[in-house]
Design a protein around this nucleic acid. Structure first.
Length: 223
DNA sequence: ATCCTGTGCA
DNA sequence: TGCACAGGAT
């Protein structure tokens, strides 16, 4: 049923992943949570970044890690202090609850060790496939796709001509796994996110600057 | 498949 | 000032 898009993904995967990795060499954005990545730092970053601009998280991230340097510290955190601290980036009530909940679950059920397998991760409340992918790929170096709305949008455009009319998101998840390289998947994931943020944006498609314009169904540039 | 959160931009 | 948004939950 979705044979066509899967075959398209397979036939273009090498060109796409190589071009994106290459683009990433020069164009990756620099954020504090991308430095010295470990599962905890990545987990915190993803929770803070949900529905929140990188600029806002940038302001408080290092201080957050200073106040709550590891999962045990976070599990012990005073909920009101945590909430106050998160005021400036918004969603502070919701987010302080989520952070406490997650840290307590990991402390109690996983002996304060953030799980390193997908199923355990998504079983933790408020950790879904995207955050699980980030923890695995960026935090543990375990190959996992990170499909957020940016990545979804990019692949929908790239494979526009063979998109099925049903269950598009499911298919895109398969496509993402096919294209994700075996090595350097973390770099690739970051580059793909940045491509969505900088080039293949929601409103504009800066195809002229796009490293995969030659492999994209929606490119406005003549091949 | 639809709902939720509250922000940030139109 | 109202609506689109994004990742997760149901």
């Amino acid at each position: 049923m979705n044979v066509e898009i899967i075959n398209e993904a397979k036939s273009r995967s090498a060109e796409i992943s190589n071009s994106i990795l290459n683009w990433g060499e020069k164009n990756l954005r620099s954020f504090p949570w991308r430095k010295n990545p470990d599962p905890y730092r990545i987990l915190i970053a993803e929770i803070l970044l949900k529905r929140t601009t990188a600029t806002a998280v940038n302001r408080i991230y290092n201080e957050f890690i200073g106040l709550y340097p590891d999962l045990k510290a976070l599990a012990k955190a005073n909920i009101d202090e945590l909430e106050d601290f998160l005021q400036t980036i918004g969603y502070h009530k919701q987010r302080s609850k989520i952070l406490k909940k997650i840290s307590r679950v990991i402390l109690n059920e996983y002996n304060a060790e953030i799980p390193s397998d997908f199923d355990s991760l998504i079983a933790i409340p408020n950790i879904g496939p995207y955050t699980a992918g980030a923890v695995l790929s960026l935090g543990y170096g375990i190959r996992a796709a990170m499909v957020d709305s940016n990545v979804l949008r990019i692949y929908k455009r790239v494979f526009f001509k063979s998109l099925p009319n049903k269950a598009v998101n499911n298919v895109i998840n398969k496509v993402a796994k096919i294209i994700l390289p075996q090595k350097r998947h973390a770099k690739f994931n970051l580059a793909l996110l940045d491509l969505g943020g900088l080039i293949c944006t929601y409103r504009n498609t800066h195809c002229l600057k796009c490293p995969i314009r030659n492999f994209c169904d929606s490119s406005s540039i003549k091949k």
